[in-house]
Design a protein around this nucleic acid. Structure first.
Lengths: 222, 222
DNA sequence: TAACACCATACAGATTTCTGTATAGCACTA
DNA sequence: TAGTGCTATACAGAAATCTGTATGGTGTTA
């Protein structure tokens, strides 16, 4: 089993909880804690340079901002920087996020090794995740593997995303059309945009533009 | 100090963390845990009926939904139901939420006794909060008292919230007007609603309804 | 009490949204 | 190759949004 672990989590009580689980349920005692991304990075760097690197990083994604100015403001920044230095360290992300596309992105783009959703079954999942990652597996959260269908069925292409984005930014379809033309993006006919948005209404069962944006924001797609 | 406490928090690791703090830092050992609102309510009810009521409830606001169907789905439901039965129990809410208006609402509308923001300083704050509430104080989180200005300058009343909510749900202003009339809520003139929404545009610097809803969703007010 | 500010409401006009119908092009296939 | 389905586009009309102006009521204050 891992012997040396770094936990990056700004939320103190959760941090304590993780350490408790690692100690008592998995038997890892050499656990270091960090409440800021920059702090985590420095700790990582120090041990790495001393030739006693951490074997596992467990990190949250979102870190609350406070008076301390940080160069890294999210777990993603932290992961990026650590991966650059040490491609071998195992990384488990442990966060609120439960959107399949976001989680998949972490595995694809930042080659994390495991993901645990904060939630009711976090303890059991964390234990399984640490064990799985130790054996070299990629460990996806059960929440994700069970219902891939629903959220991923509606496929949104680039134009759809641009439209949603610009509508949410308060632009009219005419304005959006002009922007598209200016950026040489096709299609950009006025009625095509109308039709695209209408199709999004169908996809998301929205009654109008405002409703559409509200739904998409709630789904976390925007 | 309190001797009998109920902790309602679906997120296991945090739940552990709270118990640890209550045990080790405040010296409360009779701590019961619940991971679902309904479960918390039943535990509360049982002890109350046995004439050995909890003196303090520490609860989260948001509970993740899962296969278990719950009649109470949020901490607010739980608080409402518990307050109905026992107006004397002290309640500390302990949540992600950091919007001043939401937190104030909890004190005003549900007469909670304390609030702690999940975050970097949650342990210290929780300790201070429990001690303050024990002495009969209302304990607001330091995050709130320090910068009331910014976010609270825009005061949203009930009607504003209804309008935002219904617009986000895709209803037209005419439909909303009819709903207001049906529920005997005044004012409900067509142009009044127009004017109210226009004022919200000003407040949030929104260009149109869609933009407004997007902004408010991002701010977490909806 | 008179002046002033604020709010609910009405009305009207310009703009935008939403929907339906219609045409043309492109790709696939029987 | 003719038929079918999909997409981009145009146009048009009904409905909704947005904005400006105007009026009457209420409450505050000089």
């Amino acid at each position: 089993m891992f012997t040396k672990v770094l936990v990056a989590e700004d939320y103190e009580i959760a941090n304590q909880g993780i350490v408790k689980v690692l100690n008592e349920k998995i038997g890892i005692h050499n656990v270091h804690q960090a409440k800021y991304c920059d702090d985590a990075y420095l700790k990582f760097r120090k041990e790495y340079n001393d030739n006693a690197p951490f074997e596992l990083l467990i990190t949250d994604l979102s870190f609350r901002k406070d008076y301390k100015i940080q160069t890294r403001t999210s777990g993603i920044d932290l992961i990026k920087d650590i991966r650059k230095v040490d491609p071998d360290i195992k990384i488990i992300v442990y966060s609120q996020e439960d959107r399949p596309d976001r989680i998949n992105m972490l595995f694809d783009k930042y080659s994390i090794n495991g993901y645990v959703c904060k939630g009711q079954h976090a303890i059991k999942q964390l234990i399984q995740c640490v064990e799985g990652v130790f054996q070299g597996d990629e460990v996806y959260p059960p929440e994700l593997t069970s219902n891939l269908q629903a959220s991923d069925m509606v496929h949104l292409d680039d134009l759809d995303m641009i439209l949603l984005e610009e509508l949410a930014n308060g632009f009219t379809k005419k304005e959006i059309r002009l922007k598209l033309i200016a950026q040489n993006i096709t299609p950009n006919g006025e009625s095509t945009i109308d039709k695209r948005v209408s199709k999004l209404f169908d996809n998301f069962k929205a009654k109008n533009t405002t409703h559409l944006v509200a739904i998409v924001k709630d789904l976390g797609l925007l």
